[in-house]
Nucleic acid binder design. Structure first.
Lengths: 234, 234
DNA sequence: GACATCCCTGGAACGCCGTTCCAGTCTGGT
DNA sequence: ACCAGACTGGAACGGCGTTCCAGGGATGTC
């Protein structure tokens, strides 16, 4: 009688939204964005494609849920007692690192605007901008600038990852940048004088440092325009 | 004899790479990114899908060529005798306006990194940054910051355009933003205090002004860090 | 114990996509 | 008159997201 005290379930583990999203993340990380298909996902979960639709509405919702899981993880860190500017840098770096670990997240940001993952980042950036002292009427503008920059970098990271993962799995980031840098050096000297000139800087740059430098440019611009007094504290 | 002096061609107009790219741009503008298929394109050109492949390698090259055509058009303008900072703003605005007229361009930027269209923008930005007086070693960083911000805005514009064109063709940008703004106002007051607070600013903001404000933040940041003398050189 | 019910499964099938294949046509050169 | 090669366009292939639906397993009711 009663229920047979937690039978070993119908299979090892029943299908669930969490399990599906988890498998989707693994698939995205290992096989890239093109590797996530309902058929591959079903095979990995030892079921058929149709079963997945009982738990997830469609591919859009699946990508959304996967992105949200990654973003939530990236935003949990943070000491929170740092100075606003430092906290903003840490926050941005957290998103950057998450995108570098899961490049497909960068592409997803550009696909679904104002969904839950982006809202989380927006909110966190907003609190820092408010802490910095930006007047209320200018807060949306300041946060938008930061967010759009972060999204731009994320999107490019995703694109680069695709370029040297799906096309040539054997080449790494260094070879990829080296190849692009070499092609820049052979551009027309008149039409692409500047680009030729910075070909070496492309090859040798550090993504993280460049990203942070951009964040600092924007934060400085915000401080000059809206800061309490730039150098002297109030 | 001789050749019958320019016969009226085999059809009204023979297939050509230019005609295909032109038709692709029309299709992208009117039907959105999802509307561009080789079958629809072939039908519009009164031919079969196979014929297109004689002139264009595949969909990637087609999108690249279409993007390039739009970007080239956007970069031809410009007085060139303006002050560097003003010229940079005009250049960025040119790209912004092109993306607003052809939202799919923004998505394409995030899909193919370091292809011809992006290189053109990169080169033009670089020349302005050089004219501003940024030292050579920091030019790549400065241009990257500007470019990534522009790409971020472009990608979001593309995503927003998709959201209120393919999902609800009857609603315009205002209704779309209004709906998002309304949903923000109903978020959890604790978890989304900031977002709730700027819901109105989202509804009422001007995309162009916000974009320019971001460009100005970055340009100010660059000037403070690398400007000719701002406060005092090293 | 028999039975109806509902949640959940998973394989088959639909329509559309990018791409390839190829028999055929048209054109200019000899 | 003939040929070689540029070019066409319809058919077909494999794969995708999604839908459909016959069924299986646990549960509640008599």
């Amino acid at each position: 009688m009663a229920t047979r005290a937690r039978r070993p379930e119908r299979r090892e583990e029943p299908l669930s939204r969490e399990r599906i999203v988890g498998a989707a993340i693994e698939l995205l990380d290992t096989a890239g964005e093109r590797g996530l298909t309902f058929r591959a996902l079903a095979e990995r979960l030892a079921t058929g494609p149709g079963a997945l639709y009982w738990h997830i509405a469609g591919k859009g919702e699946l990508l959304d849920a996967a992105t949200d899981a990654v973003v939530v993880g990236a935003l949990t860190a943070g000491p929170a007692d740092a100075a606003p500017r430092e906290a903003t840098r840490a926050l941005a770096l957290g998103v950057f690192d998450a995108v570098e670990a899961h490049p497909w997240v960068g592409a997803q940001f550009a696909r679904a605007p104002w969904r839950s993952p982006m809202l989380r980042v927006f909110e966190r950036l907003g609190r820092q901008v408010r802490a910095i002292g930006v007047p209320e009427a200018a807060q949306f503008t300041a946060v938008s600038a930061l967010l759009n920059y972060i999204l731009g970098v994320a999107g490019q990271n995703a694109a680069n990852a695709r370029a040297h993962q799906e096309r040539r799995p054997d080449t790494g980031r260094a070879q990829f940048l080296g190849a692009v840098s070499a092609s820049w050096a052979e551009l027309d000297p008149d039409a692409y004088a500047f680009t030729r000139n910075v070909a070496e800087q492309l090859r040798d740059h550090d993504d993280r440092e460049e990203f942070l430098a951009g964040i600092d440019f924007i934060l400085t611009g915000i401080a000059v325009r809206h800061g309490p007094s730039e150098t002297a504290p109030s």
